[in-house]
Amino acid sequence: MSMLLQCSGLSKRFGSKEALSGINFSVESGRIVGLLGPNGSGKTTLIKLISGLLVPTTGSILVDGHAPGMDTKKIVSYLPERTYLNDWMRARDIIGFFQDFYADFDAAKARDMLARLQIDPADRLKSMSKGTKEKVQLILVMSRNARLYLLDEPIGGVDPAARDYILNTIITNYSPDASVILSTHLIADVEKVLDDIVFLSNGQVAMTAAVDDIRENQGKSVDALFREVFQC
């Protein structure tokens, strides 16, 4: 197994506010990793750094041996917390758009997933509900044959049935060459599909562990552990 992602001594400062400090962690290929932490703990900042949207203040990030840039964008599929798509576009147009952009995009897979979730490809984004828009975005992101998927709150806005479908998509899309990093507050929903967790707290890594080790050693679920560690 090779290291797909390595973050060392990573810090990010916004003016006087330190969003992340001294982050060290790595992800092997073939893992599904949960990035968990309370609001404002730095989850989105970390994901943006890995995707190359932000530049670290100090420290380094290597994705498959490359610093974030053109080489890594080809192999990283990123789901942002907010939509960046034009809302006058129809679902089928956006599929064409992604096909032009990414060599690893599988348009047939995207159309198939739209059909499974009963989304009409002729609908404009503008006419879709918030949850449906999120589903469309996730379909686009998961239809790439990427090496690293960065999913920022992929299940936050959708109903429980669609949540199951999305998690199932992540499982069935699994490949030993690729890894998934997903951030969420909905730990109980995702913990069955995770290999490892990274707890972020005030911009620092509070804990990294394999989820079955937590259950074995502590006799409790990841959700219960989270509530204990981050008790308000």
Binding site: I32, T172, L194
Partner: peptide, 17 residues
């Protein structure tokens, strides 16, 4: 493994183990 993991809604590595 993939089918079983999908059916049980668990991580394929866990099913493999």
């Amino acid at each position: 493994v993939r089918d079983l993991a999908g059916e049980a809604a668990v991580n394929p590595n866990t099913m493999q183990k």
